[in-house]
């Protein structure tokens, strides 16, 4: 599927989606509360069948957080990037771990480092850091005078 066709298909699924022009992949920005439904559709639609999530991450933009999902269809070979903006104070989004199993650990990692709470995640705990760690280290305003050494 070409980029335009993809764009049309996604708009068809969810009219509220906006698209970013830049980048090598098609970037679709979706409101966080609609994210899961769109993802479910992207995964299940036979002509889209985005069955491979090759990256899930989060970017801290200081004003807000952005969840970034890189999806690919192994059958059709097309890729799309879905983004969803979250507010920084109380970032919450529905989990995707039941759609793509790989998301379970990746979401735990994002929770660990950015503090994004994934609703209905089966086991949302710190993954890389110890359970009693305070703060979300990958956020831009994170300070740790002991462990972070400024060069």
């Amino acid at each position: 599927m070409t980029r335009e066709e993809l764009q049309a298909a996604i708009t068809n699924l969810e009219p509220q989606v906006t698209f970013e022009e830049a980048g090598e992949f098609l970037n679709a920005v979706v409101p966080s509360e609609l994210c899961r439904d769109l993802m479910q559709a992207l995964h299940n639609m036979p002509d889209l069948s985005m069955d491979y999530m090759f990256c899930l991450t989060c970017v801290d933009w200081k004003t807000h957080l952005t969840m970034v999902y890189h999806l690919e269809s192994t059958a059709h070979g097309h890729q799309v990037v879905i983004k969803s903006q979250l507010n920084r104070e109380n970032p919450e989004i529905e989990t995707l771990s039941d759609i793509w199993r790989t998301a379970e650990l990746l979401e735990r990692e994002v929770f660990d480092l950015f503090g994004v709470r994934f609703i209905h995640h089966p086991d949302l705990r710190r993954l890389l850091l110890t359970d009693e760690w305070e703060g979300w280290p990958m956020r831009k305003d994170y300070e740790d005078p002991i462990n972070m050494i400024k060069l």
Partner: peptide, 9 residues
């Protein structure tokens, strides 16, 4: 299917 879903590569 599981390999794809688990993101194996």
């Amino acid at each position: 299917e599981d390999a794809i879903s688990y993101g194996c590569s």
